[in-house]
């Protein structure tokens, strides 16, 4: 299972490609792509978002399902999806309710 991630241009916030070409702030809400073709098509959507000054540096990453929620496979991506492990008061983990 793959999702597409990037950083938002304006503030650098970590985002994932969601449904309908939106960029969401929670990995749990990311759109999942299976198979090379689906991922390639999603990366094309991302490239357009780069051209439109929405995001920078998109790439694909692996996710898995835990308790019915999408979570990144790699530790690096888990940290990106939550915030610094040394600062629970900062990053996405500090704002559990926002999109």
């Amino acid at each position: 299972m793959k999702v597409i991630t990037a950083n938002r241009l304006l503030d650098g916030e970590v985002v994932w490609l969601g449904d309908g070409g939106t960029w969401v702030e929670r990995v749990a809400r990311a759109a999942v792509f299976d198979g090379k073709d689906a991922v390639a098509a999603a990366l094309q959507v991302a490239d357009q978002a780069v051209a439109d000054q929405k995001i920078v540096g998109p790439y694909e990453m692996d996710v898995t399902e835990e308790d019915g929620r999408l979570v990144p496979v790699r530790l690096r991506e888990r940290i990106r999806a939550t915030g610094p492990t040394t600062h629970p008061d900062l990053g996405k983990q500090a704002h559990p309710v926002s999109i």
Binding site: N7, G12, E13, V14, V56, I79, R80, G83, P84, G91
Partner: peptide, 10 residues
Amino acid sequence: NGLYLQLHAY
């Protein structure tokens, strides 16, 4: 100008 893009932010 010293501005990087890191994991969570600039």
